[in-house]
Amino acid sequence: MADVAARTRSGPGRLLIAVYAVFALAATARSAVQLGTRFGDAPLAYLLSAFAAVVYVLATVCLARGDRTSRTVATVSIVVELVGVLAVGTFSLVDPAAFPDATVWSDYGRGYGFVPAVLPLLGLWWLRVSGRSLERSAGSR
């Protein structure tokens, strides 16, 4: 039990957390500037940016903490992230007029090399793999 957290944040998990941290920082800084200086220009896009920032920060912190509760919160926030990038990505293509300025998730994260679309899949994969190897090591004992 004691090494749940260690296992979640080590190996590929450490790399994943690093990428999440970069996105948390980028999304937070970007939305802070957008909301602080020109909120009226594109309220929907900027509120979505802020929401994305919160999701990334939550996922980063929970993956880095890595205990059982944090893993659950991380799973939920990564699922929200996946739904968000798919929904906003589709919506921004169907109705570009609603998004005069881009969010992290516009066009499935094209402005960020589509990393926002791939990242939640990697996150869920890692939570699965690290959880499974935990069960295995618990069973072999």
């Binding site: 080590s10 190996g11 998990g13 450490r14 690093a18 970069v22």
Partner: peptide, 20 residues
């Protein structure tokens, strides 16, 4: 990134440096 990568004693440590 250097700090976070140095803590990891596997090949994923320099991976963090790549990202950073």
């Amino acid at each position: 990134a250097a700090f976070w990568g140095l803590v990891e004693r596997t090949r994923w440590g320099p991976g963090v440096l790549v990202i950073g």
